[in-house]
Design a protein around this nucleic acid. Structure first.
Length: 579
DNA sequence: GCCGTTTTCGGCCCGACTGTTTTCAGTCG
C-alpha cells in the first residue's frame, strides 16, 4: 500500500510539472498545499481513502481526492503521466536551479533542446543561452555558478554545520559599537535540520559600519553583493550569509518576515486579511484606514493580529496559527528543562573520554545525571562491551558515584539488536543496568519485515527502556532503514518504551514530525546527545530544537525528570502509563 | 483547485531586485 510520502511525492511532482507548464498558479499552489498536507498527516491516507472521505482533510477537495484515489488504485496519476510524456523529467530539476524558474526552464528546452543540467551548463558556457531573448551574459554566468554550487554541495547544508558560523557572525556584529540588535532569521532561526543560507537582521546607529565590518570578517570568502543596508557574502566553506540592516521601528516586522517560513507567512497574511489587516515586512496595515503599525518587536506583530507569540520553531504552517489564536500553543521543552543525558559514550568503547571526565563535563553543564551507554560486543571495531567488560565498567561507575556529590551516573548500554532479532547481550547482563537502549547498527539493508521484527522484539523486551536513533537515517548521506514509523510508535506506546530523539545534527532521529506523532500517541521521548567526545554533550541543543519543532512538551521527555524521580521510575518494570 | 462570520463565485500574500528591457518579466525571499 502506498505510503503517505509516496502520495505526497507524486502530488509534488505533479505540481512541479504544472508550474513548468504554466497552468494557473493557484491550481499549482493548491496541489502543492495538498502534497504538504499529505506529507504531514500522521495517519495513513490509504486507510482514510478506504474507510472515510479524503475531502475531510483541509486543502483536499474532490479533484485532488480523485487523484489520490487514482494513485492508490493504479500507482499512477494520468495527468502526471501526460506531463511526463510531454516534458523530460529533468526539467523539473532545472527549474529549481537558483536563477532559473519555470519560464526559463521551458525556454531553454523549447529553443535549445536542453533537457538536463549538463546540457544547460554547456549552453550557458558556449553562449547559446545568452543569445536567447530575455536572457543575457549575466544570467548565463549566474546559472553556471549556481550549477557549480549544486554539483559541489549536492544538497542543503546541515544545521549543525551552519549554526556555529551563524552564531559567530551574530556575536561579532553585535560586539560592534554601532550595532543595536543583531539576530539570526530564516531557517537557521527556525532550527530546520537543513538550511540553504544564513539570514541575519540587525539595527544600527550607522548601518554602513555594520555592512562594512561584515564584508571584511575573516570567514568571508567573497562578497556577492554589498550596499549600505544589505549585503551578501559567501564564506570560505561555501555558506551564503545575507545581512540586512533595518530601521529600529521595523525590526519586529522584518525579523518576523525574514524568519518565515514562507508557508507560515502566507498563512499569517491570509489570516490577517480576514481580520482587516495587510501584513508585509514594512508593517501591519489596517486595510480600512490605511493606518500602518510599525513593530519594534515580533511579539507586537502577533499581538496586533490577535494571537499569542509563536516560537520560531513552530512557524511551518502546521497548525500553529490556529493554536496561537486559541491560546493553545504548547509549552515547548527547552534546554532549562533537561536534567540529564541518557546516551553518552566513554573510552570503554568508541568514545574518546574517560567516564569520570564525561560525568564532570555533564555536571558543569548543570545536569544532575548521565547514563554511560557504550556499545555492545558485536560492534567489534568500537571495542563494544562483553558481559565481563560490562561488569568491570559497572564497578568503575560505582566507584565514581561513591566519590561524587550531587550528580549520578546511571548504568546503561547501547545494546545492538542483531540481524536475527536477538539482543547482543544476555538478559542477566541487561538486568544489572539502570537503563537499556537498543539500537540497530548492522543489517541496514534488510527488508522492512525483518527490520520491524527486530525493533518490535526489542520494544517488547521488558528490560529495554528506549530505542536509539529509531530510523537510522544520516541526513543527506544515508536513507533510513526500511521502517514503518507508525508501527514503531504504536508498539512504543503499547510497551511503554521510550523513543530517542538523537541530537547529533547528522541524525536528528526521530525527526520533528515523528516526534510530534509519537507525543500524540502517548509515547515517552528521550533527548540524547549520543556524545563520543566531551564537546558532543552540547549537541543536545539540536535534539531539543527538533523536539520543539515537533511541538514536544517537557512532560513528554524522560530526561526532564529529576535524578530521584527517574531512579524511582527505573526501579519499576516499564509500563505504558509510566509518569 | 480550494474555500467561505461580507462569499458557493471570485478570490487566492507581498514587495523588491536582477537582468533585461525601454516599461517589464522572471525570480526570490
Amino acid at each position: 500500500m502506498a505510503a503517505n510520502r509516496d502520495i505526497a511525492a507524486a502530488l509534488q511532482l505533479l505540481a512541479d510539472f504544472m508550474e513548468l507548464d504554466g497552468v494557473n498558479k493557484y491550481r499549482t499552489i493548491a496541489v502543492e498545499k495538498a502534497a504538504r498536507r499529505v506529507a504531514e498527516a500522521d495517519f495513513s491516507l490509504a486507510d482514510l481513502a478506504r474507510e472515510g472521505d479524503l475531502t475531510d482533510l483541509p486543502d483536499i477537495g474532490p479533484k485532488i481526492a480523485a487523484k489520490i484515489t487514482e494513485y492508490l488504485d493504479t500507482g499512477r496519476i494520468a495527468e502526471l503521466e501526460e506531463f511526463r510524456s510531454r516534458y523530460p523529467d529533468d526539467l523539473v530539476a532545472i527549474q529549481r536551479i537558483q536563477g532559473v524558474g519555470p519560464k526559463t526552464a521551458r525556454k531553454v528546452w523549447e529553443e535549445l533542446g536542453v533537457s538536463s543540467m549538463d546540457e544547460l551548463e554547456a549552453a550557458a558556457a558556449d553562449g547559446r543561452l545568452a543569445a536567447l531573448p530575455g536572457l543575457g551574459p549575466k544570467t548565463a554566468a549566474n546559472i553556471i555558478k549556481a550549477i557549480g554550487r549544486l554539483k559541489a554541495r549536492g544538497s542543503r547544508l546541515l544545521l549543525g554545520e551552519v549554526l556555529p558560523v551563524a552564531e559567530e557572525c551574530v556575536a561579532l556584529l553585535a560586539a560592534l559599537p554601532e550595532a543595536r540588535e543583531v539576530a539570526c532569521a530564516g531557517s537557521v532561526r527556525r532550527m530546520k535540520e537543513t538550511v540553504k543560507d544564513v539570514d541575519i537582521i540587525a539595527t544600527a546607529s550607522e548601518p554602513e559600519a555594520l555592512t562594512g565590518a561584515f564584508c571584511s570578517l575573516p570567514l568571508v570568502g567573497d562578497v556577492i553583493a554589498s550596499g549600505p543596508t544589505k549585503c551578501s557574502v559567501r564564506t570560505h566553506a561555501g555558506v551564503q550569509i545575507d545581512l540586512r540592516v533595518v530601521p529600529d521601528g521595523l525590526y519586529g516586522n522584518l525579523l518576523q518576515h525574514f524568519t518565515g517560513s514562507k508557508e507560515h507567512n502566507v498563512a499569517l497574511r491570509e489570516h490577517a486579511i480576514s481580520q482587516g489587516f495587510k501584513v508585509s515586512e514594512y508593517g501591519v496595515e489596517e486595510t480600512a484606514s490605511g493606518k500602518v503599525h510599525e513593530c519594534g518587536s515580533e511579539a507586537e506583530v502577533y499581538d496586533l493580529l490577535g494571537m499569542d507569540y509563536i516560537p520560531p520553531e513552530l512557524r511551518e504552517d502546521s497548525g500553529e496559527i490556529a493554536a496561537a489564536l486559541a491560546g493553545a500553543l504548547p509549552r515547548l521543552v527547552s534546554g532549562a528543562d533537561i536534567r540529564g543525558d541518557l546516551h553518552v559514550h566513554s573510552d570503554w568503547s568508541d568514545g574518546h573520554a574517560p567516564i569520570r571526565e564525561m560525568a564532570r563535563a555533564a555536571q558543569e553543564l548543570g545536569y544532575e545525571y548521565i547514563a554511560i551507554s557504550d556499545h555492545s560486543q558485536s560492534l567489534g571495531m568500537t571495542g563494544g562491551l562483553t558481559p565481563e567488560k560490562l561488569e568491570r565498567q559497572l564497578e568503575e561507575v560505582a566507584r565514581i558515584n561513591d566519590g561524587t556529590e550531587g550528580f549520578r551516573i546511571f548504568t546503561s548500554i547501547e545494546v545492538d539488536v542483531k540481524a536475527d532479532a536477538t539482543l547482543d547481550l544476555p538478559d542477566d547482563s541487561l538486568a544489572a543496568l539502570d537503563f537499556v537502549t537498543v539500537s540497530i547498527h548492522s543489517g541496514f539493508t534488510q527488508e522492512m519485515s525483518q527490520i520491524m521484527e527486530r525493533l518490535t522484539a526489542a520494544m517488547e523486551h521488558p528490560l529495554v527502556r528506549a530505542i536509539g536513533h529509531p530510523t537510522g537515517r544520516l541526513i543527506n548521506r544515508r536513507d533510513p532503514y526500511e521502517v514503518d514509523i507508525e508501527a514503531i510508535i504504536a508498539t512504543a506506546a503499547r510497551t511503554g518504551t521510550a523513543l530517542e530523539v538523537n541530537s547529533h545534527f547528522q541524525r536528528l532521529d526521530l525527526c520533528d514530525l515523528h516526534a510530534r506523532a509519537a507525543q500524540d500517541a502517548g509515547v515517552r521521548l528521550v533527548i540524547n546527545s549520543d556524545a563520543h567526545h566531551i564537546s558532543d554533550l552540547r549537541l543536545l541543543k539540536y535534539g531539543i530544537a527538533t523536539a520543539r519543532r515537533g511541538w514536544v512538551r517537557p512532560e513528554t521527555i524522560l530526561n526532564t525528570l529529576t535524578a530521584d524521580r527517574l531512579a524511582r521510575l527505573l526501579e519499576r518494570p516499564k509500563s505504558p502509563t509510566d509518569t
